[in-house]
Amino acid sequence: MSVDPKSSELLYIRLFSTTTTALTEIFFSELVERHNVSDTVFLVDESTPSSDGTPSVWTPISI
């Protein structure tokens, strides 16, 4: 999901039944086709889902 932080507008949503690097690449290529993201920083959740309340690990990336 991609959200404009100033307006909270949803820019792009794509749901997949699984998570893989290939699907992430598809999402970003489709997002780049629709929006100018040249000065955008993305936060990627690299943590493993857990039920113990462990917080997510957000890593900033640029494309």
Score class of each variant (00 low, 15 high):
40 T>D: 01
48 T>A: 12
28 F>Q: 05
60 P>K: 07
58 W>S: 06
2 S>Y: 09
18 T>E: 14
37 V>T: 12
32 V>S: 13
45 D>N: 15
12 Y>R: 00
52 D>F: 11
58 W>A: 01
26 I>T: 15
6 K>R: 11
31 L>F: 11
4 D>G: 03
4 D>M: 09
17 S>K: 13
7 S>I: 05
22 A>R: 13
8 S>W: 00
62 S>K: 12
41 V>H: 03
23 L>C: 01
43 L>P: 02
37 V>Q: 04
20 T>N: 07
50 S>G: 12
39 D>W: 05
10 L>P: 04
4 D>I: 11
48 T>F: 10
30 E>V: 02
30 E>C: 02
30 E>K: 12
7 S>L: 01
57 V>P: 05
55 P>A: 09
29 S>E: 14
61 I>E: 06
47 S>Y: 00
22 A>L: 07
23 L>Y: 12
8 S>N: 11
51 S>C: 00
45 D>L: 06
22 A>P: 10
43 L>C: 01
15 L>W: 08
49 P>R: 04
27 F>H: 07
18 T>C: 02
41 V>D: 00
8 S>E: 03
4 D>N: 15
63 I>V: 14
34 R>D: 08
63 I>P: 09
28 F>M: 15
52 D>T: 07
13 I>M: 14
56 S>H: 09
1 M>P: 07
33 E>K: 15
51 S>I: 10
9 E>P: 03
33 E>M: 12
15 L>H: 05
59 T>K: 14
16 F>D: 11
25 E>C: 11
33 E>N: 13
22 A>I: 12
60 P>L: 06
10 L>I: 15
62 S>L: 08
31 L>V: 06
14 R>G: 06
43 L>H: 01
43 L>T: 00
37 V>G: 02
62 S>D: 08
20 T>Q: 02
63 I>C: 09
24 T>H: 09
10 L>Y: 09
63 I>Y: 13
32 V>L: 11
27 F>N: 05
56 S>A: 15
38 S>L: 03
33 E>G: 02
3 V>R: 10
8 S>M: 04
40 T>A: 15
38 S>Y: 06
18 T>Y: 12
57 V>F: 08
34 R>L: 13
24 T>C: 12
62 S>P: 10
15 L>T: 13
35 H>T: 03
59 T>S: 13
23 L>V: 10
38 S>F: 01
48 T>M: 08
16 F>K: 10
13 I>F: 13
49 P>A: 03
4 D>V: 04
28 F>P: 02
14 R>N: 14
20 T>L: 00
49 P>L: 06
52 D>M: 01
63 I>G: 07
5 P>Q: 07
37 V>L: 13
45 D>Q: 05
33 E>Q: 15
44 V>A: 10
8 S>T: 09
47 S>H: 00
3 V>M: 05
55 P>I: 06
46 E>Y: 04
28 F>N: 06
48 T>H: 07
55 P>G: 05
42 F>A: 04
41 V>Y: 12
60 P>Q: 05
3 V>S: 11
51 S>P: 11
13 I>A: 14
12 Y>W: 07
61 I>H: 04
53 G>L: 09
53 G>V: 02
59 T>Y: 06
9 E>A: 11
4 D>S: 02
41 V>N: 00
9 E>Q: 13
22 A>N: 02
9 E>M: 09
46 E>C: 14
33 E>Y: 05
21 T>L: 13
38 S>T: 14
23 L>A: 03
55 P>D: 07
